[in-house]
């Protein structure tokens, strides 16, 4: 069997196994629909640190340490750490990695980083280069808000198309053996830009990228949306996932009840987040808590996880550039 399908999909012959997960979320997420699934809920969004950036770093450290522990391993057993976050120069990831005596790769795929890190990590394991890899991402509402938007105490209203950056970190431990949940293939996405300039409307900016990657995945693997128990996009939000469904239908793929979106799922409608959640942490905490537990329970056997990211910076949007989107997908199966 070829290790590559079509132009963008790679197939793992020695499928990497998911042997440990851990999620940590902020207070607001702790009141959301999935509060019973998260492993740790912060009592204070500062997490005992002085700044929100430090709190974000500490959340990531906490998630990685506990995920390694869940997998029954020690830090020195780990071969590689793959992390990413939203802050400039991905400082949360690199600073968290400083605390571990493990080789480290930093990724930036905006909110798609969770899927990207799983795909990259799986390739290393399948290739036989490493056997134990931690893939983690994090985001923090307050640090993202001050970097991308306005001061927290500014008395303005959030636009109705906006999404709420999730405060949270999630970590997945991949291994060459030891579990019945495995990553069977991954589809890398292309940067897609349909000319959206509204920085608040990230869902609309990312939906075309999600469409491109999902369709490529279905074509490459010769499957259809009905073949999956769950198709989960990253953080398109309510509006973005409606747009994705329309786009997919136009291309002849109908997404049905088995489709959902992390951003749309995470917050309940009383939490005033308008279109739902976003950020690296959003897809990371949903995947590593809810989806993994449901897979363990046997509810889902075949999950397509397609995290989406908007690759903008504050400079690019101030200079009037359109927002490019990216989406990477990994297929997770339980034997």
């Amino acid at each position: 069997m070829s290790k590559r399908l079509g132009s963008q999909t790679i197939v793992f012959q020695n499928s990497p196994k998911i042997i440990g997960n851990y999620t940590i979320v902020g207070q607001k997420e702790g009141n959301s629909n999935f509060k019973n699934y998260f492993d740790y809920i912060l009592k204070n969004d500062l997490f005992g640190e002085k700044t929100y950036e430090s709190a974000e770093r500490k959340m990531l450290e906490h998630a990685i340490l506990n995920a390694i522990d869940r997998a029954g391993l020690k830090t020195q057993d780990m071969d590689l750490l793959i992390c990413g976050d939203l802050l400039n120069q991905i400082i949360s990831s690199s600073f968290a990695a400083r605390e571990f005596d493990v080789t480290y790769l930093g990724l930036y795929g905006a909110c798609s980083t969770m899927a990207e890190s799983l795909a990259v990590g799986s390739s290393f394991i399948d290739g036989g280069y490493f056997s134990k890899i931690a893939c983690a991402t994090c985001s923090h509402f307050s640090s993202a808000e001050r970097q991308y938007r306005f001061p927290l105490e500014l008395g303005n209203q959030r636009p109705p198309v906006s999404q709420w950056t999730v405060t949270g970190a999630g970590c997945t431990i991949l291994s060459d053996s030891g579990s019945d949940k495995e990553i069977v293939n991954a589809t890398f996405g292309k940067v897609t830009d349909f000319g959206i300039t509204d920085v608040n409307n990230m869902g609309a900016a990312m939906a075309p990228a999600a469409m491109s990657t999902l369709i490529k995945h279905f074509e490459d693997t010769k499957t259809s949306p009905d073949d999956y128990d769950l198709i989960l996009t990253g953080d398109l939000g309510k509006l973005g996932s409606e747009i994705l469904m329309d786009l997919m239908e136009n291309k002849g793929y109908k997404l049905k009840d088995n489709y959902n979106d992390c951003g749309q799922m995470i917050f309940n409608c009383n939490q005033k987040t308008y279109q739902g959640g976003s950020g690296c942490g959003c897809s990371a905490v949903i995947l590593n808590s809810y989806v993994m537990q449901k897979m363990d329970e046997g509810v889902y056997k075949k999950v397509l996880f397609a995290a989406t990211g908007a690759l903008l910076s504050t400079l690019s949007s101030q200079q009037g550039n359109t927002i490019p989107g990216i989406c990477h997908a990994v297929e997770i199966r339980r034997k």
Binding site: P160, V161, G195, N201, L239, T322
Partner: peptide, 18 residues
Amino acid sequence: NSVERNKKYNQYVESKKP
């Protein structure tokens, strides 16, 4: 072409806005 596609997409998104 992509300019036309983007224009159409933007109009569509505008109509989808809540």
